Amino acid sequence: MVQKTAGQSLSACSWEELLQHRDRLMRLVRRRLPSAQDAEDCVQETMARAAAHAALDRNRLGPFLTSVALRLCIDFYRDVERRRRLLQRAAVLDEPWTTEEDVCDEDFGRWLLGQVRLLHGREQEVILARAAGISTAEFARRHNISIKAAEGAFTRGRARLRTACAKALEGRAS
């Protein structure tokens, strides 16, 4: 066995040393990825990253390759999910919107904002914060309250808005 000196790096390793792990990595990722081609791509990318890693300890080559391969599998599924969400958004954007629908949506938005302004205190604040894209947890942190308190105010405010919408639809506008 070759002893590793303090300055030795993976660049001194040969492709043969990397290829010794190929079959094991293929078995590992093949169980996790949908096709053999995806598994092959993952293993090749894993080996390329190991070859480019200048300060890799030879004794840690196997665990390093395993970790990189598993993370690439996770990245694969993240990418699949990201593409799925993007396609859903694209499908929604392709729906034909008429001017009438746009006018109705804007009018309802103005009415709903007026209803939010009728809410009191924290309920109004948290609803407006959520509408601005601020999470309930972030709202709680900014206002020095517990997350449960912020979530409770949001839930109560949303329930009041739901009731106002139901009354308006029944013709009993508040």
Results as ranks from 00 to 15, higher is better:
3 Q>N: 06
4 K>E: 15
4 K>L: 13
6 A>R: 08
6 A>K: 12
10 L>F: 04
15 W>A: 11
18 L>W: 06
21 H>M: 07
21 H>A: 08
22 R>P: 01
27 R>M: 12
27 R>L: 08
27 R>D: 07
30 R>T: 08
32 R>C: 07
34 P>V: 06
36 A>L: 11
36 A>K: 12
36 A>N: 12
48 A>W: 07
48 A>T: 10
51 A>Q: 13
53 H>G: 02
55 A>G: 09
57 D>L: 04
61 L>N: 02
62 G>S: 11
67 S>V: 03
68 V>N: 04
75 D>M: 04
75 D>Q: 07
80 V>C: 10
81 E>K: 09
84 R>H: 10
85 R>M: 14
85 R>Y: 09
86 L>Y: 05
86 L>S: 11
88 Q>W: 04
89 R>F: 05
89 R>E: 15
91 A>W: 04
93 L>Y: 00
97 W>I: 09
98 T>G: 05
100 E>G: 11
103 V>S: 02
103 V>W: 07
108 F>Q: 15
109 G>A: 14
110 R>D: 12
110 R>H: 14
111 W>N: 00
116 V>M: 03
117 R>Y: 11
118 L>V: 01
120 H>E: 13
121 G>Y: 01
129 A>R: 06
129 A>G: 12
135 S>Q: 09
138 E>G: 01
142 R>A: 05
143 H>L: 08
148 K>H: 12
148 K>F: 02
151 E>C: 08
152 G>E: 03
157 G>C: 10
158 R>D: 05
161 L>P: 06
165 C>M: 13
165 C>P: 00
173 A>D: 09
